[in-house]
Design a protein around this nucleic acid. Structure first.
Length: 897
RNA sequence: AGGCACGUAUGUCAAUGGUAGACGGCCACCCUUACAAGGUGGAGGUUGGGGGUUCGAAUCCCUCCGUGCCUACCA
C-alpha cells in the first residue's frame, strides 16, 4: 500500500466532512436506538455579520469534542447551529453598503431597507457557518436556526405578550444610554467605560440671600454644558458647611432660572466641594435624585448631541463640546469660574461605534427583572443549577450580578430586528398582541400604528435554547432536547446572555435551559493582549488551519479550555508533529498488515506476551482517564493523556516491542496474530482520538484492513462505516493491571539504562554490545528472560546474559535499576576507569541527596506520629530502595579500583 | 473605588497538602528504512518577595510587589 511519508491535512479535510454531512451522521436521527440517552448543545449563535475568530474556534472545538464523544458513546446527540441577527451590527453593515451608493436607509424607507438587509444576509451573511464546516463541527444542519426566522420571531412575540400581560414589560420615560451616532438607546451592558483624561471645572453659583449678602456655592463638574439644564444643587444632609443653606435659592448663571439647594444622601461630602449640580435630564444619578425631590427636567441636549432651544438662544444648536467651551468662557467672564484642574474619569462609549454616550430621557420599553431574577437565583439556591465550570469564580460572579440587577431596556431605535408587537390607536391607547389582527380585534379598530422600535437583539437570544426547538409549540424536539446538556461560552456574555437564558427558560419552560455552563478562557496575543480588530493583533484560525491543519489546531484549542492563554505557534507545530506521528505509526502498521485485520479476538489467545498485556492495560487506563477528564470538562488533561498514550506507550514502546514479530520476513500465524493485535490497538487509539482529531482519524481508520459496519456502535447499525459512529472505547477495568505495567516498566528502565551508558560513553550506534543483567533477589528473572530479544534489539546488543548476580568483567559500565536489578555493559578498551567511577559517583550523589531528604523526614518523630501510616511506609519503601541502589553503586565503583 | 483571579524551566502551560512535570526551545550524538515534523541521551527551578499554619506548602492564611479581568451612581 502506498502511503506518503508526511501527513497532508488538506487532503483529509477536503474529503470527509461532506460525506459525513450527506450521510446524515450529524443528525440525531442517525441513532436508531429508541432508548438512547440524549445529549444536546445549542451553539452560542454567532452574529450573521461575523467571521470566525479564535474565540469561536475554541468554543466550537470544545462543543465538537463533547458532541463527538457522546455520539460515539451511543447518545442521541444534537448540536444545533444557527446565527443571531445582530441588530445594530447588521444595520451598520448595510448602511455602509448604501452609503457607497450614495443612499441612506431613510431614502429607502423601512420596508425596503429591511428587504435589503435580508438580501444582504442571503448573499454575504453567515460566512462563519461555512468556516464551521472547515473546523469539522458536527452540527445538525437540518436544524439550523436564525433569530429572525418566522418560528423564532413567533416565540419572541409570544414571550413579549405574556410578559406584558403580567406587567413585567412596561413602557415609560426613563433616563437611558443614547448613542448619538447610531441614534438608538443602548442597555447598560452595551456601553463600555473607558478612562479619559479630562478637566474638572469648579463653577460658582450665586445664592439669593434675604439680606442681599453676596454668597456663592461652588460645584464641580466634568460637563459644564449640562449646567444649562440644572434644576438644583445638592449637598449631603450631614454636611455642616452647608446646613444653613439647605432650602436656599440659587440664581443659575447664564439662564434666568432659579433653582433650590437641596439635601440628599447620595452626595459625598468628601468629594470636590461637597456640593453637586443636579441635571436630571442628562445624568443617571441626577435623574434618580430628581425623582426623589420632584425636580423638573430641563432637556438641553438633543438626540444628535446638540443643544436645544431650552439651553438658551446663545447655545441653541451648538454641538455639546462647543457649548462646553462657551459655557466655560462665559463663567470666566462673569468671574464665576473658580478653577479648572486636570482630572481623569471614565466615560461611557457605545460598544460598537465608540461614540460618547449621551444620557437622555426617553420613552422606551423596559423589562422588570425582579421576578425573573428570583427564578434564576432560586434555581441556583435549590438545585445548584446551572453548574459552572470553572466553578470559581463564575458561580459567584453570576449570582452577585443577579442580586444587583436593574430593569432591562429592551427597545431599540433600529429597523433590523423584531419590531415590538405593540399597536397604538390615534387616541394613544396601546394594544400589545401576537399579531396585528389580534390587536385590531382588541382595539376594535383597524386604524392602528405599530410601535416603530425593535427589540434588543439579546431579547431573542435569551429564548434561544427553547425557541430553536419549536417553542411555544410542545414539539418532539423540545420534549427531547430541552434542557440542553451544557452551554459553552465566553465569559463576557455571562450576564448579557447566560443569565437571561436561565431566566427566560425558567419562566417559560419551567426548567433550566442547560445543566452545565463551561466558560472558556480567552485567547490572547503573545504579549498577553486581547485579540481585537482595532488592535490588528488577531490570529485568523483559518490561517492556522492552512499552515498546520485543523486537527493540530483543535488539540491546541482543546488544551486551552478555560485558561487564558497567549497564542503561540510552537504549540500548534508540536501537535502538527503529533498528527504526523500518528500518520506514520499507522503507515508502519499498514505496511505490515498483510494477513491481518482489526480483530479484537486477536487478544484472546493465551498466553499473551508481556507487551500485549501491558498495552491492553495502558489502553484501558487511557480510556478511563479520558472518560473522567471529559466528564469533568478537563479537556487539557484528556489531550495530555491521549498524546502520551499514543506517542510514548504506543509508538515508542509497543510498536518497537512488536516490531520483530510484526515485521518478520516469513509469513506465519504468529506474525498475523501480532499484526492483528497491533492494528487492533491502533484502531482503538484512533477512536479515542477521534473527538479531538476527526479528520486524520477518519482518514486512517478507513484504510485499516477489516473495518466495516460491524465496528459501528449498535445504535448506528446500518450506517456507512465511519469512525465517528464507532463506539468510544469503554475502559475495561479487568484489563487495567498493575502487574504487566510494573514489569514492563522494569524492562523499559533496563533498556533506558543501557542506552544511557551507550550515549555517555559515546558507543557508536552501529556497535553491538553485550548486556549483562543481575536480577538480584526479586522475581524479575522471568521477565527479563521472556523479553530477551526485545531488550537485545532495543539496546543494540548481540548477547544478553542474565544471572542472579551481576557477573561482568572489570572493564564494564554499570548501572542500577529501580527495584535493585543491576546491569553492566562490558566495554573493553572504551572504559576509562577513573571516568567510569566518576559517572557512578554522580549517579550515587543524586540518590544520596534524595535519600538525605527522606531520612530527615523519617527522623522527624512528628512525621511518624502524625502522617498517615500509608505515607510513612511509602517513604520507608523508597528509602530502602534508594539505599540498596546506593550500596550497589558503591560496590560497582569499588570493582573498578 | 471596590471585588475576583493570576504570578511555576528561556517560551506556553500542568500538578485532590505528600518524590515539581509536559510540550517547544537549547546542548551532544545519530539520515538506526513508520516518522529528521524523527531517534537516543543531556542541561535547565530556593514555584514573584517576606512572614505564618502544618509532620509536610507551588497548593491553605497574612502581607508586600507585579499583571490581568469584572463590577461601580464620586459629580
Amino acid at each position: 500500500m502506498e502511503i506518503p511519508k508526511t501527513y497532508d491535512p488538506r487532503q483529509a479535510e477536503q474529503q470527509h466532512y461532506a460525506r459525513w454531512e450527506e450521510q446524515g451522521c450529524f443528525a440525531p436521527e442517525i441513532n436508531r436506538d429508541p432508548k438512547a440517552p440524549v445529549y444536546s448543545i445549542v451553539i452560542p449563535p454567532p452574529n450573521v455579520t461575523g467571521s470566525l475568530h479564535m474565540g469561536h474556534a475554541l468554543q466550537h472545538t470544545l462543543m465538537d469534542v463533547l458532541s463527538r464523544h457522546k455520539r460515539m458513546c451511543g447518545y442521541r446527540t444534537l448540536w444545533l447551529p444557527g446565527m443571531d441577527h445582530a441588530g445594530i451590527s447588521t444595520q451598520l453593515v448595510v448602511n455602509r453598503e448604501l452609503k457607497k451608493e450614495g443612499l441612506s436607509r431613510h431614502d429607502l424607507g423601512r420596508e425596503k431597507f429591511v428587504e435589503r438587509v435580508w438580501k444582504w444576509k442571503h448573499e454575504s451573511g453567515g460566512q462563519i457557518l461555512n468556516q464551521m464546516r472547515r473546523e469539522g463541527a458536527s452540527v445538525d444542519w437540518s436544524r439550523e436556526r436564525f433569530t429572525m426566522d418566522e418560528g423564532l420571531s413567533r416565540a419572541v412575540r409570544e414571550v413579549f405578550v405574556r410578559l406584558y400581560d403580567e406587567g413585567l414589560i412596561y413602557r415609560g420615560d426613563r433616563i437611558v444610554n443614547w448613542c448619538p451616532n447610531d441614534q438608538t438607546v443602548l442597555s447598560d451592558l452595551e456601553v463600555e467605560k473607558t478612562p479619559q483624561a479630562g478637566k474638572l471645572y469648579y463653577l460658582q453659583y450665586p445664592i439669593k440671600t434675604p439680606n442681599g449678602e453676596e454668597r456663592r456655592v461652588t460645584v464641580a463638574t466634568t460637563r459644564p454644558e449640562t449646567m444649562l439644564g440644572d434644576t438644583a444643587v445638592a449637598v449631603n444632609p450631614e454636611d455642616s458647611r452647608y446646613s444653613d443653606l439647605v432650602g436656599a435659592t440659587i440664581r443659575l448663571p447664564l439662564t434666568d432660572r432659579e433653582i433650590p439647594l437641596i439635601a440628599d444622601e447620595y452626595v459625598d461630602a468628601e468629594f470636590g466641594t461637597g456640593a453637586v449640580k443636579v441635571t436630571p435630564a442628562h445624568d443617571p444619578n441626577d435623574y434618580e435624585m430628581g425623582v426623589r425631590h420632584n425636580l423638573p427636567q430641563v432637556v438641553v441636549i438633543d438626540q444628535h448631541a446638540r443643544m436645544t432651544e431650552d439651553a438658551g438662544a446663545a447655545f441653541s444648536g451648538l454641538d455639546r463640546y462647543k457649548a462646553r467651551d462657551l459655557v466655560v468662557q462665559r463663567f470666566e467672564e462673569l468671574g464665576l469660574l473658580e478653577k479648572v484642574i486636570d482630572y481623569e474619569f471614565s466615560i461611557s462609549r457605545c460598544e460598537r461605534c465608540k461614540t460618547v454616550i449621551e444620557p437622555l430621557i426617553s420613552t422606551q420599553w423596559f423589562c422588570r427583572m425582579a421576578e425573573l431574577r428570583d427564578l434564576a437565583l432560586g434555581l441556583m439556591r435549590e438545585e445548584n443549577k446551572p453548574v459552572f465550570t470553572p466553578e470559581v469564580p463564575y458561580r459567584k460572579v453570576y449570582t452577585d450580578w443577579l442580586e444587583n440587577l436593574r430593569d432591562w431596556t429592551i427597545s431599540r431605535q433600529l429597523w433590523w430586528g423584531h419590531q415590538i408587537p405593540a399597536w397604538y390607536t390615534k387616541d394613544g391607547r396601546v394594544f400589545v398582541a401576537r399579531s396585528e389582527e389580534e390587536a385590531r380585534a382588541a382595539a376594535g379598530t383597524d386604524d392602528l400604528a405599530q410601535d416603530q422600535d425593535v427589540l434588543d437583539t439579546w431579547f431573542s437570544s435569551a429564548l434561544w435554547p427553547f425557541s430553536t426547538l419549536g417553542w411555544p409549540d410542545e414539539t418532539e424536539d423540545l420534549k427531547t432536547y430541552y434542557p440542553t446538556s451544557v452551554l459553552i461560552t465566553a465569559r463576557d456574555i455571562i450576564f448579557l446572555w447566560v443569565s437571561r437564558m436561565v431566566m427566560m427558560g425558567m419562566k417559560f419552560v419551567g426548567r433550566t435551559p442547560f445543566h452545565d455552563v463551561f466558560v472558556t478562557g480567552t485567547v490572547l496575543d503573545k504579549h498577553g493582549q486581547r485579540m481585537s480588530k482595532t488592535k490588528m493583533n488577531g490570529i485568523d484560525p483559518l490561517d492556522v488551519f492552512d499552515k498546520y491543519g485543523v486537527d493540530a489546531t483543535r488539540l491546541v484549542l482543546a488544551s486551552i479550555g478555560s485558561t487564558d492563554t497567549r497564542w503561540n505557534d510552537n504549540q500548534v507545530e508540536s501537535y502538527r508533529n503529533f498528527a504526523n506521528k500518528i500518520w506514520n505509526a499507522a503507515r508502519f502498521c499498514l505496511m505490515n498488515s498483510d494477513g491481518a485485520s482489526v480483530r479484537p479476538e486477536a487478544f484472546e489467545s493465551e498466553p499473551l506476551p508481556l507487551h500485549d498485556r501491558w498495552i491492553l492495560s495502558r489502553l484501558n487506563r487511557t480510556a478511563l482517564e479520558v472518560d473522567r477528564a471529559l466528564a469533568g470538562y478537563q479537556f487539557h488533561e484528556a489531550v495530555q493523556t491521549l498524546y502520551h498514550f499514543f506517542w510514548d506507550d504506543f509508538c515508542d514502546w509497543y510498536i518497537e516491542l512488536t516490531k520483530a514479530d510484526v515485521a518478520a520476513e516469513a509469513a506465519s500465524l504468529e506474525r498475523d496474530a501480532a499484526r492483528s493485535r497491533l492494528l487492533t490497538v491502533l484502531e482503538q487509539a484512533l477512536r479515542l482520538l477521534h473527538p479531538f482529531m476527526p479528520y486524520i482519524t477518519e482518514e486512517l481508520w478507513l484504510r485499516l484492513p477489516g473495518v466495516d459496519e460491524k465496528l459501528l456502535h449498535s445504535a448506528y447499525s446500518g450506517a456507512e462505516p465511519t469512525i465517528m459512529l464507532t463506539s468510544y472505547p469503554q475502559p475495561d477495568e479487568s484489563l487495567i493491571d498493575e502487574r504487566p505495567e510494573s514489569e514492563m516498566s522494569v524492562v523499559i528502565d533496563l533498556i533506558s539504562r543501557v542506552r544511557n551508558i551507550r550515549s555517555e560513553l559515546n558507543v557508536k550506534p552501529g556497535m553491538r554490545v553485550r548486556v549483562v543483567v543481575g536480577t538480584g533477589e526479586g522475581n524479575l528473572r522471568e521477565v527479563f528472560e521472556a523479553n530477551r530479544e526485545q531488550i537485545a534489539r532495543l539496546t543494540r546488543a548481540n548477547a544478553i546474559s542474565i544471572g542472579e548476580r551481576l557477573d561482568a568483567p572489570r572493564a564494564s559500565a554499570r548501572a542500577v535499576l529501580a527495584g535493585g536489578a543491576e546491569v553492566a555493559v562490558p566495554l573493553e578498551g572504551l572504559i576509562d576507569f577513573a571516568q567510569e567511577r566518576e559517572r557512578l559517583g554522580r549517579e550515587r550523589e543524586k540518590l544520596q541527596k534524595e535519600a538525605a531528604k527522606l531520612e530527615a523526614q523519617l527522623a522527624n518523630p512528628q512525621f511518624a506520629e502524625r502522617a498517615p501510616a500509608e505515607k510513612v511506609n511509602e517513604v520507608k519503601q523508597r528509602l530502602a530502595d534508594i539505599s540498596q541502589r546506593t550500596i550497589a553503586l558503591q560496590q560497582m565503583a569499588e570493582a573498578l579500583l
